[in-house]
Design a protein around this nucleic acid. Structure first.
Lengths: 206, 206
DNA sequence: TAGATTGTTAATCGATTAACAATC
DNA sequence: TAGATTGTTAATCGATTAACAATC
């Protein structure tokens, strides 16, 4: 059912499947069952089958899933079969760290531009990318057809950067600043907040 | 009901409440309603009231919640009313970035030790902390009573580091490596995986 | 008192899991 | 054929939201 609304929980599991399938493929494993996957990923096999079944019939009864075929399908679902240009604002430590992840992002996601508003950072080179002034954001983002923006500036500046991303026509934002940002409702924002993560972990201490 | 099991979703929202309440407190706001909170945090007010009600009666009917009192209560719930020593393994770019967040982690969480297994990194100073050899993990972690471990090593080394954390007696792990790690079931692991986050965001592009 | 807002119950909604016919 | 495993329906479980009496 292509028109069915897919829950966020399902979408969040797809990249996890993809990563593990890539490992299997590297080891030349041909086939994998939902049983196997569930065991390795700590998930219920029925859930995995159901997740995949939202998008098509990718498996073979009695056999399981062909690893390379499933990789291809999940990459299509996640739109990783086309190149997705990404821009990052905030060339501090975290921003630099993420730029250096570019190698990991082989699956067609690529950070193609880095911006900062501070004179001291502008002109620096990070991973072959020159840090540009935030004044150039709109022009550069449109020129490079950037579709996803990453925010790694301090909390106080996050909303302003988000506004600039919106104005430049970015379609989705990944926000690392510890701050809720407001964007038009049709845009997607994911929060990746280290401090929140760590604090919720503290709850589970005895 | 102190003995009721609290869902993970609830626990994850508490730090978000805390952060916003801290902002209100800084602005000398005395009182806040679930209505206000819901609007600012994009959550249903009933959900906020229910979340808080799991832990006690913190509000006043007709008035709302006293900001500073609620901050105090949430900090207690999250165990942030005592100092929680944290250790980090992997002094690469990401590890360095997180160490520099120490300032943000005012709420009693503190990175007190940094380790790396590579000669080239050992002895470096990050944010006043000397990077130690992973050989010293167990001794140092026990000496400093570290309770939470952060993993910022490459995926291939993540499981090994997790094992060392377990052996040293750490109680919970925050794993930034793009890799599922296995630990004894009584231990808590949270994943903070940048690549997964970014890939699931791609799904929502048109 | 009138208005506001909590804490909580009941209703709704959605996600996970179990079970099994279909079939490789 | 016998064994394995999918895709899918039905059952279960859990989380969110609405509604409202209690009360500040």
């Amino acid at each position: 059912m292509k028109t069915m609304k897919i829950s966020e929980a399902v979408v969040r599991r797809l990249p996890v499947y993809l990563r593990f399938l890539n490992e299997l493929s590297k080891k030349n494993v041909q086939t994998v069952s939902s049983q196997d996957l569930g065991q390795k990923l700590d998930l219920n096999p029925a859930q995995i089958r159901k997740d995949l079944a939202y998008f098509g019939e990718f498996g073979k009864k009695g056999i399981g899933y062909d690893v390379d075929y499933l990789i291809e399908k999940i990459r299509q679902i996640l739109k990783l079969d086309k190149i997705i240009p990404v821009a990052l604002v905030g060339a501090g430590n975290l921003g630099r760290a993420l730029c250096n992840y570019n190698a990991y992002l082989k699956d067609n996601m690529k950070i193609v531009a880095v911006f900062d508003s501070h004179e001291s950072k502008i002109g620096d080179t990070i991973n072959n990318l020159k840090v540009k002034s935030t004044n150039e954001m709109k022009a550069t983002i449109q020129e490079l057809k950037v579709r996803i923006g990453i925010i790694t500036v301090p909390a106080a500046e996050a909303q302003q950067v988000a506004n600039q991303f919106v104005e430049a026509g970015v379609e989705a934002i990944l926000n690392f600043a510890p701050m809720i940002i407001k964007v038009p409702s049709e845009m997607r924002v994911h929060h990746a907040d280290f401090t929140t993560e760590l604090q919720s972990l503290a709850y589970y201490l005895d």
